[in-house]
Nucleic acid binder design. Structure first.
Lengths: 205, 205
DNA sequence: CCGGAAGTTGACGTGTCGTCATTTTTGTGA
DNA sequence: TCACAAAAATGACGACACGTCAACTTCCGG
């Protein structure tokens, strides 16, 4: 073969580094799900890998930083989904609905792992990391665009973005408590509420 | 004096017990505000009192339990406020507005202490302690009553209650970031959003 | 094949954890 | 008033997690 390895693997150094990082993140996911974020220790995480305790600190400063990396991962995956929803939307209502569907789908997938209740898997969600900020801004820009186009009235975009996020979080959590979770119903509810308020939310069946 | 002490102080036992508990809670408040919930240790809290480390465990099992006690305190104080808002409300809109005002006032007062950003003062807020549950139920009952009276359409009361709580939390936090926080403006926004959706939210000035 | 840089390792000192035997304080009945 | 038991406070203790670091291993370029 003229190409012994592949095009990707630059060097063993880089490869194991990436692999170790991923191993730690994967172990952290499991540990947070099983023990809960609070109870989990750096040692628990590292025990879930083949690595030694000292190695952990070559990759992350603390348990908190690992969580941030996981959250940032999520945010990085989620933002483009949101962006595409905005670009492909045929109306403001369509945009809102598909954004909620995307988020609810996201959290359903993110909580497939067995273990502790969802609430205990994460610390207080900080919105102030760069990646989280980017998601907030994406939401806000989507709303500002709608306002600029006249699809939505000229309300306080910051408050509106926060309200949408709050609704998504709480209704999303409530949805997860129901089995099976009905993503569309939850998205319909949230969209209707924001668009027309109580009058717009779907009636009880 | 025919009454050496007062009518209240039953015995020294009970009094110091209550005083110690309060001392621990007060110290915890300060420590959580100054170091953040995550960084704080049981030792930090107990150092903020005159007590010895072992004594802490006569009152609470852990840092988490102290926080829960603080949260329960808040919930216990807040619930009757909410209840009265419901009883005195002249309309559903009035109820919503005064409930939001009450909550926003509450968090403004609760965050007077100097120290770390509000986000870091608390762990992920658990809604599943009895006191917290009671607040959720109070919100939900208020909404169900409105639905029963025909003041609000027959929507999913669980989702609606969660949405209101989510809006209150996120818009509340956003409000705290602005100086000075404008409680009425935030409450107007939230009330309008829920009642009539975007069309009902106040326009930007 | 060698030398050094990059990365890994696990033992170490520090500090927190929750426990518990001991001491101190408080209430009660003689 | 005193003595005694129950209640509560104390702080030392073993266990364990923290983050560090000197020694060691692995990898890469020359």
């Amino acid at each position: 073969m003229s190409q012994p390895a592949a095009v990707e693997p630059i060097g063993k150094r880089e490869r194991t580094k990436a692999a170790n990082r991923q191993a730690i993140l994967a172990a952290a996911r499991r540990v947070f799900a099983q023990l809960g974020y609070e109870a989990a220790t750096v040692r628990d995480i590292i025990r879930g890998t083949e690595l030694a305790s000292g190695t952990f600190y070559n990759y992350f400063k603390s348990k908190e930083e690992v969580f941030e990396a996981l959250a940032d991962d999520g945010a990085r995956r989620f933002k483009p989904i949101l962006r595409r929803a905005r670009e492909n939307a045929r109306s403001f209502e369509d945009y809102l609905h598909s954004a909620f569907v995307a988020y609810f789908r996201f959290i359903v997938e993110d909580n497939q792992l067995e273990g502790r209740p969802i609430d205990e898997r994460r610390p207080h969600l900080r919105l102030d990391t760069p990646e989280m900020m980017a998601v907030y801004l994406e939401v806000r820009q989507g709303l500002e665009e709608a306002i600029a186009h006249g699809d939505a009235p000229r309300v306080d975009a910051d408050y509106l973005a926060c309200a949408c996020i709050g609704i998504a979080q709480e209704v999303g959590t409530a949805m997860l408590r129901r089995v099976p979770p009905d993503i569309d119903a939850a998205a319909d509810f949230a969209t209707g509420l924001i668009l027309k308020g109580l009058g717009g939310a779907p009636r009880q069946s």
